[in-house]
């Protein structure tokens, strides 16, 4: 099925033009109601629905800028480079729908809350914002869903995808291919810097006697460090059993057994556009170990699900895996 010629146009229309229009409308309405707003408005509500933190009324246009302008723009920055280079796939469609859904949610939320606070005196009494919050979420989900299905379907299209020839393994031959893959050095440096800052913050809080904030921060730091260790460096292996990718700390582990390999390919991955980012990712119908952009090993199982691993020398890995898959097909194993 050929992809529609209008994919980019739909993306720009739904992911950029509509959010821009929603932002413009929100700013205009908020400006019109500005003078009737109290200078100080609630910023946070507790579980009983009562305001427990306050701030400037400027929070409405600021929130509009973050949720209706910046966030959709970020998602479009993820999706457009790949799309403009001719890539297609269901994740791009999802990114666009998400951008529009967020824009709708944000504009209904901020403008609705502004509308609620018109004519309220300084200090209250404060209107209930629950209705607007619920309405914003519902509107966002509905519009985002509509935006997804309104767009033309995108069949996965990667210009640099190819299938190498299977390695010619003799009957008496055995082989193993091993390689490591990890996020680039600057990524690790950035994470270390962030962790260091977090640690300094936690230590500072604890030293000043603030355990209620310091302890959770320390716990959060440990969780972040563990997650980073599990998701930023992997050992990849292709052998008689199939393909396996294990995190450097031993877990998690991703594998496809040779008998379950339906097809193998070498592809060029667009991390942001196809998987929405880097690390251990979930795309539409695919699990990715995406350490960087560039050449990756893609294994498709018989159930259609794909495992994508960015790794150097993916060509050799693919050729070997194809040879083992062929072997596994030729000699079905008998379960004990």
């Amino acid at each position: 099925m050929r992809n529609s010629r209008y994919v980019v146009r739909w993306t720009v229309a739904l992911g950029m033009i509509v959010p821009a229009a929603l932002a413009a409308t929100s700013y205009a309405l908020q400006a019109a109601w500005w003078d009737s707003l109290p200078i100080v408005v609630p910023h946070h509500w507790n579980f009983a629905g009562e305001p427990d933190a306050f701030g400037s009324r400027a929070s409405f246009p600021i929130a509009t800028t973050v949720i209706v302008v910046a966030l959709p723009a970020l998602l479009m920055a993820f999706a457009l480079p790949g799309l403009l280079r001719g890539r297609r796939g269901p994740t791009y469609r999802l990114l666009t729908a998400f951008a529009l859904g967020m824009a709708v949610l944000g504009s209904v939320l901020t403008t609705g809350d502004t509308w609620l606070h018109r004519g309220i005196a300084e200090g209250g009494p404060w209107p209930s914002t629950t209705g607007v919050s619920v309405g914003a979420i519902v509107a966002g989900v509905v519009c985002g869903t509509l935006a997804f299905f309104a767009q033309p379907r995108q069949e996965l299209m990667r210009p640099d995808m190819h299938t190498p020839a299977a390695l010619n393994l003799g009957e008496q031959e055995r082989a193993v291919w091993m390689h490591t893959t990890a996020i680039p050095v600057w990524g690790r440096a950035g994470l270390a810097l962030g962790a260091g800052g977090f640690l300094a913050g936690a230590v500072g809080l604890l030293a000043s006697g603030n355990a209620t904030a310091g302890v959770p921060m320390l716990i959060a730091l440990v969780v972040v460090i563990l997650s980073a260790a599990m998701a930023t460096a992997f050992r990849v292996r292709v052998d008689q059993r199939g393909v396996t990718a294990v995190s450097m700390v031993g877990w998690p582990r991703f594998a496809v057994v040779a008998a379950d390999v339906a097809s193998v390919a070498v592809v060029r991955v667009d991390g942001l556009g196809e998987f929405g980012g880097f690390g251990i990712r979930s795309g539409v119908g695919a699990t990715g170990i995406i350490m960087r952009n560039g050449m990756a090993l893609e294994v498709t199982r018989h159930n259609g699900k794909r495992l994508v691993i960015t790794v150097d020398d993916a060509e050799t890995a693919a050729a070997l895996l194809m040879a083992f898959a062929k072997r596994a097909r030729a000699t079905p194993s008998v379960s004990p």
């Binding site: 393994l169 003799g170 031959e173 055995r174 082989a175 193993v176 291919w177 091993m178």
Partner: peptide, 10 residues
């Protein structure tokens, strides 16, 4: 890194 061995080789 690729390691290939032939069990039938001398």
């Amino acid at each position: 890194m690729l390691i290939r061995i032939d069990a039938s080789s001398d």
